[in-house]
Simulated scan of single mutants.
Amino acid sequence: MIKISASASIPLLTAVAVTGLLISSPVLAQSGTQMSAMLDRADRNADGRVTWGEFTAVRSDMFDRMDRNNDGYVDRADRPRIIGDRFDQAYRALSSLDANGDRRVSRAELRDGPADAFEAADANGDRVLTADELAAVRPSR
């Protein structure tokens, strides 16, 4: 765990993996191990599948952790001093969801933004990643 404030901590793998799933399918190839860890965490009821609801809950959790000043936006004002580089990496990835170009990402922009990686993994388009679909995006060992 990496401490980012007195009241919040964030596992690095989850931050990087969630960021990858938020943005686009090319990230799948770049961070397969992190994405796999994130998908395992997203399976909240441990049934071996990740539903769209479980996925969006993980996105919301990430937003809550990154919005350190609780103003409803993730922007440079949320950047921690000590581990700012990791925040910067996640923020750069999130910035593609900034639909109105105001250099901050609102909860609505995150909620309504594209989830290309999830959709790419969802081979049959039913908004549920099955065990087979998850296996297809996991890195080979």
Rank of each mutant, 00 (worst) to 15 (best):
I2C: 10
I2H: 09
I2G: 07
K3G: 08
K3C: 08
I4F: 15
I4M: 14
S7E: 13
S7P: 00
S9D: 13
P11F: 08
L12C: 03
L12E: 10
L13Y: 12
L13F: 12
T14A: 13
T14S: 13
A15C: 12
G20H: 14
G20R: 09
L21D: 01
L21H: 02
L21Q: 02
L22M: 09
L22Q: 03
I23S: 07
P26I: 09
P26A: 08
P26R: 09
L28W: 04
A29F: 11
S31C: 08
S31P: 00
G32N: 05
G32C: 08
T33R: 14
S36L: 12
S36I: 01
S36D: 09
L39K: 07
R41Q: 10
A42Q: 01
D43F: 02
R44K: 12
N45T: 08
A46E: 14
A46S: 15
A46Y: 11
A46H: 15
D47V: 02
D47C: 04
D47T: 02
R49A: 15
T51H: 02
T51Q: 04
W52T: 06
T56M: 14
A57I: 06
A57N: 08
V58D: 00
F63Q: 01
D64E: 14
D67T: 05
R68W: 05
V74E: 03
V74T: 02
D75N: 13
D75T: 04
A77D: 14
A77C: 07
A77E: 13
A77M: 12
R81D: 07
I83T: 11
I83Q: 10
R86H: 11
F87S: 00
F87R: 02
Q89W: 11
Y91R: 10
R92T: 13
A93Q: 08
S95G: 09
S96C: 06
S96G: 13
D98Y: 06
A99R: 14
A99Y: 01
A99L: 12
D102F: 05
D102I: 06
D102Q: 10
R104E: 04
R104C: 05
S106C: 09
R107N: 01
R107W: 03
A108L: 11
E109Y: 04
E109H: 03
G113E: 10
D116M: 03
D116V: 02
A121N: 05
A121C: 08
D122S: 07
A123G: 10
A123M: 10
N124R: 04
N124W: 04
G125I: 07
D126T: 06
L129D: 00
L129S: 02
T130P: 01
A131Y: 01
A131I: 04
E133N: 04
A135E: 11
A135L: 11
R138D: 06
R138Q: 13
P139D: 03
P139A: 08
R141C: 06
R141V: 13
R141A: 15
